[in-house]
Nucleic acid binder design. Structure first.
Lengths: 241, 241
DNA sequence: GCCGATTTGTCCGTATGTATC
DNA sequence: CGATACATACGGACAAATCGG
């Protein structure tokens, strides 16, 4: 159930664009027309459209209209704009996702971990290593650090499923945003072993480090995701201002 | 000169946050207060704030307020949200940028190039190889394909400076958006030679492929940027909806 | 638990500016 | 020039969440 009017309009337009009810390069109906078809104010359709702009689905042109520039995705794009759990992106791509917990520890942040994760020294943390399979292939190793005080009661069993599902639906935490940094790093022996990589073939991999915040403003998670280079693919739409 | 009120407010708040006039984790003045300090309507301050949210500077919390979660950047972050030319990001990081044109050709798209770039077969294109130096170090090799009909009069001399400056200020083109895909690929002999890489050290690199559109809705540029793995760093802020 | 004050979220209507055709 | 389209801005109304008494 979508809660707001502009979100229903956004989803409806998005679906129509994906379903190619509007042809590529054509203009969408004008805001004035959309106001009448959806029976709402102009501000409301504009909010919906601005979301489509950030999604890279349309471009707005003053004096002209709103042009459809959506191109269907060719392949299994891994991550897109927002925050997505592994399970969610697997589902979106119609793939079967499985997670194996390699390691589940309760630790206290020393200076080295603090520098790596940005958690203060002395923080009580869960440290997990998790291996993510997509359609049976091991593709990602995650090194997760969760703040124990914000994520109480985490267990190995939960970590084998979806941690985000536990956070949102059991702990009723609201995940807000995530600062991510993408780099390329040398592979380690752990990567080589679990992802079945050969350093003579690929000796680097894509690494995504993220600091994630909840609605209490606490950074409750630091994760380093190490991706098989030959399957990594990150999509983005940039807008010139 | 900022053209709009909300943009001035956005920039002012952004600067205050960066200058740490608001402390980390504290709430900003309420919308009501900001309306009075800036002498504008509530919608206008809300537009400014929503930009700060997408920048990852603040998070808004219904019933509470707007919390400052800005952390000063630790390092030379390479790319951030929007579209930036090499020159612009060099300047933003207070680094000296220089560009060397390795190759400047006029070509017609055959099936192979068409598949690679998404330009239709038979398109008249400029093909450039350019080497970008930052503070004297060669860091990026760009393979640029420009649609000749949209970018007339491009020369080697222009390409040694800023092509985007030429597009925007001489041709008065409006660049709108860019679809980017990031992957990790094996290095080639060209990469090895010009970026002074050693395949025994790093045998992969970060590759950013982008399709860029102007306000006429034409995809006028396809570029493959190949980045030295040890200097590549891409930042992003993701929002959970 | 309730109530009221505060704060952000959604939505509306209107007016004016600016770009396109 | 006028008509159309999007961009900016204002003011007001109500909903929803938070917090303190």
């Amino acid at each position: 159930m979508p809660k707001s009017k502009y979100e229903t309009i956004y989803k409806d337009l998005k679906q129509k664009i994906e379903g190619e009810e509007f042809t590529y390069q054509d203009l969408l109906p004008s805001e004035h027309v959309l106001v009448q078809t959806y029976g709402c104010s102009r501000n409301t359709v504009r909010r919906a459209i601005s979301r489509l702009v950030t999604d890279g689905y349309v471009q707005t042109l003053q004096g002209k209209g709103v042009r459809n520039i959506f191109r269907p995705v060719e392949q299994t794009s891994f991550t897109l704009g927002g925050i997505e759990s592994f399970r969610e992106s697997a589902k979106r791509n119609h793939q079967e996702g499985r997670t194996e917990v390699l390691c589940f520890l309760e630790i206290t942040a020393d200076t080295k971990i603090a520098r790596r994760t940005d958690f203060p020294v002395g923080s009580e943390l869960y440290y997990l290593q998790r291996l993510h399979y997509l359609d049976g292939k091991p593709l990602i190793i995650n090194h997760n650090y969760f703040l124990k005080s914000a994520v109480p009661g985490l267990t190995r069993e939960i970590a084998e499923g979806s941690i985000y599902d536990y956070l949102e639906n059991t702990l009723h935490m609201t995940i807000v945003n995530s600062r991510r940094v993408m780099t390329v790093e040398k592979i380690t022996q752990i990567d080589e072993k679990y992802l079945h990589l050969d350093a003579n073939d690929y000796n680097c991999m894509a690494v995504v480090s993220s600091h994630t915040y909840n609605s209490d403003g606490v950074m409750f998670e630091f994760t380093q995701s190490r991706h098989r280079p030959d399957y990594f693919r990150f999509q983005d739409n940039a807008v010139r201002r």
